[in-house]
Amino acid sequence: MSVSSSTPTTVTNRFRWRIVDIVVASVIGVASGLIFLAWNVGYVGPSTLLEPLLPGLQGLLDGPWLFAGVLGALVIRKPGAAIYTELLAAVVSALVGNQWGGFLTLEAGFVQGLGAEIIFLIFAYRVWTLPVAILAGAGAALAGGINNLILWYAGADVTFTIVYLISTVISGAVIAGLLSWLLVRALAATGALDAFPAGREVRQRV
């Protein structure tokens, strides 16, 4: 009773998340969360070295907390991917516990993810090039930086504020933007991203 004329392809909505999108975004988020956990402790050393040089320079160390969203978005390429991955990484960090408390960790994750998300949104989720990745990293940093200034460096003066914002944006652009982009390229080359556009672009038939 099933007479079909052609391949029954459901029209796949470019913006709809497939199950594999959700699960892989989650995996990336959780893996990033582990890096957050390591960095929650690891940044203390470099930070005490950098601060005396110029207060605010510790913003250069923010990158490792910002890459999750950019990485997730570059792989998944769906609306909300940056927020979702960054937030999930923050959930891991919050569940294990850190010096910022659960709610503020989640809040920071959301804000940082949002910073990256807005950049991808501006490009209508169509452009996934290196410059856009760098912008997104910087966007995450700017959003996260402002958030930190309000909540954690409330007592800071103007010099600190400016130095901090500039250094965190540099860190975001390089670590969260450039490095994430390179990482996605390396991942795609292994074939692990074959289920995603980022992986299919580089795939060759054998």
Binding site: M1, S2, S4, T7, P8, T9, T10, T12, R18, V20, D194, A195
Partner: peptide
Amino acid sequence: LGADEGESEGSIRLGGALPS
């Protein structure tokens, strides 16, 4: 088998319905 994982031709039906 995700539609975007490859190409398919012909049809499969489970009791008349699409497997997905």
